[in-house]
Write a protein that binds this DNA or RNA. Sequence first.
DNA 1: AAACCTCCCTGGGGGC
DNA 2: TGCCCCCAGGGAGGTT
Length: 271
Amino acid sequence: MPELPEVEVSRMGIAPHLEGQQIKAVVVREPRLRWPIPEQVMQLEGALIHQVERRAKYLILHTDKGFLILHLGMSGALRVVASDSLVVKHDHFELQLTNGQCLRLNDPRRFGCVLFSAQHPGVEHPLLRALGPEPLTEAFTASYLHQQAQGKTQAIKTFLMDNHVVVGVGNIYANEALFKAGIHPKRAAGKVSLARYQRLVPIIKETLSAAIAQGGTTLQDFTQADGQPGYFKQHLNVYGRGGRPCMVCKTELTEIRLGQRSTVYCKQCQR
DNA sequence: AAACCTCCCTGGGGGC
DNA sequence: TGCCCCCAGGGAGGTT
């Protein structure tokens, strides 16, 4: 499942193949994604791609004829392959380039989206306008998070996963970061001290950065049909380990549901 | 307004 | 072996 690190790895993988290239044809095989793929994407035929940007878990292709917004949802994957390479099940969308390559989106669960924006969507588009800061920038600090949390009774895990607070912290990283920071996932966000946010924020940054760095090792063969590598799985302390012993104190890990999401923690280590 | 809940979708896994 | 049911997840949008 693409979390922020995987989207960033996707961006790094596809950008060198796309930037400076021209779009020859836009192919929509299955328009029924999260939202129907709009007709306007056809306007990108003939466009020159300037840049591939990531904002939260969205990828934004800058072209001289507008902006393409991509979201991978739960199960989406992007590959750069030869335009005549075999189309497989769930290959819903592609941009064919004049150099014979194409950017192909495969998404079995269709939670992803492909959208068009005439202006840069970061400030203008309703989906991106209200997003919180990027976790790997200087804007994301302990004092910012502490201030956002003031008066909130919401569980800190739900708070961290709210895109208005900070983007890109999905269920896996919220679980892992709270474990490493020793904070109970159900603790009210507004009752977590500044000192504990000062511990948590660097942990979130380090966890995301480490995952990106490891995804980087798969960049070489990114254009091959390998699928998701699962490179981060061996580093997980709590996610998917409910009922098994805590790696620190051996206490049986507790699994609960919080905001419809599976939540695993150590009742000994996390308070 | 804040804090919940629901829904979209398919593949995979467990139970029988 | 095969079938059914449930679950996973991001995040918009609805409800309380």
